[in-house]
Design a protein around this nucleic acid. Structure first.
Lengths: 149, 149
DNA sequence: GCACATTAAATGTATGTACATATATTTGCA
DNA sequence: TGCAAATATATGTACATACATTTAATGTGC
């Protein structure tokens, strides 16, 4: 469906306004698609993303700062998302021995098992961009990089 | 800055994963840019977007359902965003005479004045996509439409 | 006319986002 | 040494998001 129909706005001021609205709308649309994949496992998208970062570090620990660095949303509150994961016993949190200001966060075996369970689902969805060719996906990334300079 | 540097991830599985992450990251980046423009007027981005829809309807009223239809984020709670705007006296809410289940929401003169004040700011920013040519903006919209089918 | 489904909006609850502030630890330097 | 600045994380508050449930009004079939 074209963006004009999605939000029932027949015209836009120009291609810039149209692309901006389309970009925000499509990003939200994709995130909702992804979220629905985790819902049955009681994981939210931010929680899932943090788990993936931790798996990338495993078996090394990550600090909150490292998580923020790698998160898509820099201003979100990694500390409280880790809280939720800790309650579910998907991660552990221990004071870093070499720097007692920092906290070592590690994914648990249960966390790794959960991610492994979800991997094929995500792979199958090809990350939600299944309608683009490889070339178009690359072209899209280039345009997005250009937007942010 | 390329997306690899933004989130400090040197490689991606493929162009699909890279484009997906870039899309979500860039949409958030743009929304934050926009939000900063309203902050000094104590308006949030969702509040601003609802006000703009109401201006588009003015002087006709809008219902909550109409707002949801036109909002970028369909699942957000229009009712409570309208609450906030009502407290600030930027909109009015009256029971619809012809269908007492529905509510007529109208932008006030104060609301219109606030939007008029913000218009030049947004225009100047060219909606945040100033680094793209007109053709590239159109190309971007086409790719995004294609993602969603 | 009346039970029952449908529709429109509001409300409840958990989570996340945004931003300011607080607490604890470490660093650096007079 | 001692003390201010910097660093790492946590906490407080307001707002938004996601989704289920509730309340009220309307529509429909019998």
């Amino acid at each position: 469906m074209k963006i004009e129909e999605e939000i029932k706005q027949p015209t836009f001021k120009d291609n810039y306004q149209k692309a901006l609205i389309n970009l925000v709308f499509t990003a939200g649309w994709l995130q909702q698609q992804q979220s629905s994949l985790f819902k049955s496992h009681s994981l939210t998208l931010p929680q899932f993303n943090i788990l993936r970062i931790l798996r990338g570090q495993h078996p090394k620990p990550a600090t909150v700062n490292l998580l923020i660095d790698r998160m898509l949303d820099k201003t979100s509150n990694a500390s409280r998302i880790v809280d939720k994961l800790e309650v579910k016993q998907l991660v552990t949190r221990t004071v870093c021995p070499s720097n007692r200001r920092a906290v070592d966060i590690c994914i648990t075996e249960a966390g790794l098992a959960l991610l492994n369970q979800l991997d094929p689902v995500l792979e199958h969805q090809r990350n939600g961009l299944q309608n683009l060719t490889d070339e178009e996906a690359a072209q899209l990334s280039d345009l997005l990089d250009k937007i942010r300079n």
